[in-house]
Design a protein around this nucleic acid. Structure first.
Lengths: 146, 146
DNA sequence: TTATACATGTATTTTTGATGCATGTATAAG
DNA sequence: CTTATACATGCATCAAAAATACATGTATAA
C-alpha cells in the first residue's frame, strides 16, 4: 500500500516552503534539494498553485511561496487532492460485488486513515520537525550519557 | 492508494471458501469464478496455506478449504500478511528524514486503517454479504414497489 | 532585448505487480 | 502400478501506471 510520489512531492514542497516563509523559492532549487525530476515537480507545484496552496511569481527573480498560513493547510485535504485513486481493490470485475462485505470494511478503514490526516495541518508537521531537530541539537550526546 | 491484487485475491479466496464450508474447492474453479489468472491464484493460495488460513489436499479429487473457523480469521491479520509493502512514502532518499513530521502522521494514519480491519473477521464479511443478498432476494422488486 | 522562472502538452522510460510457462510432487481411481 | 488430476514452486515475460524527459509557450525583471 503506497501513496504516489506525486503526493509525496506535494507534501515535501509544502514542508520546504513552510520552513522558508520569508522568501521565494524556485522549483529548480527544491528539485535539487530533494534530488527529484524538476519537470515532475513543476507539475506537482502547478497543481498546488491551482488548488490555492501555493502562490507563484513568474519571470526573472520569480518563484513560489505558500499561499496560506501553514495552520490552514490541512494534510488530509492535500492528500485527498493529490492522490487521485483511492479504490483500494478492483471491484469492477469482481463477481461478488456489490454483495461483498469487504468493500464496506475497506471504505471504513480508508475513512479512518484520512480522518487521522484531517487532524493535522502543515503547521503541526513543521512543529514536529522542529521538536525533533531540538532533540538532536539541544543536548549533544556524550559517552555514557542517556 | 491501492492494495495489490494479491491481497484482493487472497480475500476473495477466503470469502469463496467461507461461503462453501462443506466441500473442497479447486483453485481452477475459483480462478474461473473470478476470471483471474490460475497461476497467480495458485501462489496466493499457497501463501494462505503456509500461513495456516487454508488447508489443501493434493492429488485427484483434492482441493482447498478453510483451515479455521471464519470467526477466527481476522481481516487485519490477513491484509498485514499478504500486503508486504506498507511504506506509504519513500523516505529512504528524502533529505528531511528522519526529522520529517510527515512520517509519524502517516504511520498513525496507517495504524488507524489497519485497526479498523482488525475489528472484523471473515465471518463478519460473510454475514454482511448474507444481509445484502437477503435484501436482494427476500422481497423481489415489482413495478411501483419501493 | 534578454535571461530566467513558471505553465503545459506530448513522448518515453522505469518500476512493479500480474501473468504465463515449465516442471515437480502427491494422491485417488482404475 | 499406471494414469489423471490437483497443489507446489521457480523462472521468464508482459502490462499498467507512474515517473521522467523533451519541447514549447508565457510572463517579468534587469
Amino acid at each position: 500500500m503506497r501513496l504516489t510520489r506525486y503526493t509525496d512531492y506535494a507534501m515535501r514542497v509544502l514542508l520546504y516552503l513552510g520552513a522558508r516563509p520569508e522568501r521565494l523559492c524556485s522549483i529548480a532549487e527544491i528539485a535539487r534539494a530533494y534530488d527529484v525530476s524538476q519537470n515532475h515537480l513543476m507539475k506537482v507545484v502547478n497543481d498546488l498553485v491551482r488548488a490555492g496552496y501555493v502562490a507563484s511569481v513568474r519571470g526573472r527573480l520569480g518563484g513560489i511561496r505558500l499561499a496560506r498560513d501553514p495552520g490552514l493547510v490541512n494534510v488530509g485535504q492535500v492528500v485527498r487532492h493529490t492522490e487521485v485513486d483511492f479504490d483500494l481493490v478492483e471491484c469492477g470485475t469482481c463477481v461478488i460485488a456489490p454483495a461483498c462485505g469487504l468493500t464496506g470494511v475497506l471504505r471504513e478503514a480508508l475513512e479512518a486513515f484520512l480522518q487521522v490526516l484531517d487532524r493535522y495541518t502543515l503547521a503541526d508537521l513543521l512543529a514536529r520537525r522542529q521538536d525533533l531537530a531540538d532533540l538532536f541539537l539541544r543536548d549533544p550526546p556524550r559517552a555514557g550519557g542517556s
